[in-house]
Design a protein around this nucleic acid. Sequence first.
DNA 1: CGGACGAGCTGTACGGTGTCCAATATAGCT
DNA 2: AGCTATATTGGACACCGTACAGCTCGTCCG
Lengths: 193, 193
Amino acid sequence: MATVGSPRTPGARAGLSRGAVLAAAREVLAGDGLDGLSMRAVARRLDVAPNALYSHVASKAALIDEVLDDVLGAVEQPEVTDPRAGLRGLLMSTYDVLVEHPDLVPLYLARQGARGPNARRLGEVMAALLARGGVGGRPAVEALRVLIVHTIGFAAFATHPPVEPGAGGPLSAEELRGNFETGLGWVLAGILG
Amino acid sequence: MATVGSPRTPGARAGLSRGAVLAAAREVLAGDGLDGLSMRAVARRLDVAPNALYSHVASKAALIDEVLDDVLGAVEQPEVTDPRAGLRGLLMSTYDVLVEHPDLVPLYLARQGARGPNARRLGEVMAALLARGGVGGRPAVEALRVLIVHTIGFAAFATHPPVEPGAGGPLSAEELRGNFETGLGWVLAGILG
DNA sequence: CGGACGAGCTGTACGGTGTCCAATATAGCT
DNA sequence: AGCTATATTGGACACCGTACAGCTCGTCCG
């Protein structure tokens, strides 16, 4: 999960750390949902005054950004070098990670993905796979965008299903995942020919 | 834009109406952006106490839901009956409408589309087009989902561009629209064969 | 060993939010 | 005219994010 510890700076009392704040935020999120995620709630969970958080995090938005990127650290990077299989594996893993954190998905949605080092790393891996498949430059940027949209968007559907437009009962997680993979196949076919 | 007027109920003072509240909310949104959209701001614009809004709208969430569905009334319904052309036209129009309301897009994103009558009507039209293309039942539901995800997701990219992963300057609105249409073509090819 | 430094944390406070309650004003119907 | 149902108000509650000043304490320098 790639949470880092602080390297013992001078004047540091025993208490908090950036990682602890991050962890507490994720616990609050898991327990009380997105609406329950407030600075005060995080501080309460750490038995600390709300302002104390600001020694470790610039703002609530920054906190959320860090949580989002942190979670992406769990995405498995494919060992295959075949573009289609690699992208499929990477994005399926991304989808799985997102679905494991339902409360975070609307946040990814609202921010169009994360922005930290983990997210950047994933973007680079995807770009490399595309390049290996002969897709580079502007088309690669476009393809990347379609893939990311499809993945986050579908994770959102899986975690926060809206009203079903047609008919049929609620879909199981497996069906949804299959649905995602099918659509992913279409998109990859379009990208890689 | 399909805003409705109230049919003059007894005891009604000259003032407000559900439609007026909706309109004021959209004006605030256009003027001050999403962050500026508060019940108090809407009330201020109507020269009215904040609580007065609650006579016409159940909650802020309900207000937002109605605004979202309202905007969808501007989507052009295709006259064509050919599934591919019809879906393409419908979704391109949806994309255009979404892009015209940048501040609303994150809200569509967060709620996975709208839920009111306009949204339902669009869903039915799409389902009918799919059925005419020989896609029905569960596969139609899946296809619908992929299409909606692609459209809203891409509108989000167009209106709130994240950091570009690869390289190249910022994309123009036309390029983005073309990018959307290309991806849409891939998806439609996958759905309709 | 002692003092200074600087970071972590707290108390307090400001301006904002969504929304509930009781009370008032107003329009239409009988 | 009186009644009733509704719209609207004033006030309040419980939160929110976060800025500022000050205290506490570990660490380092002299």
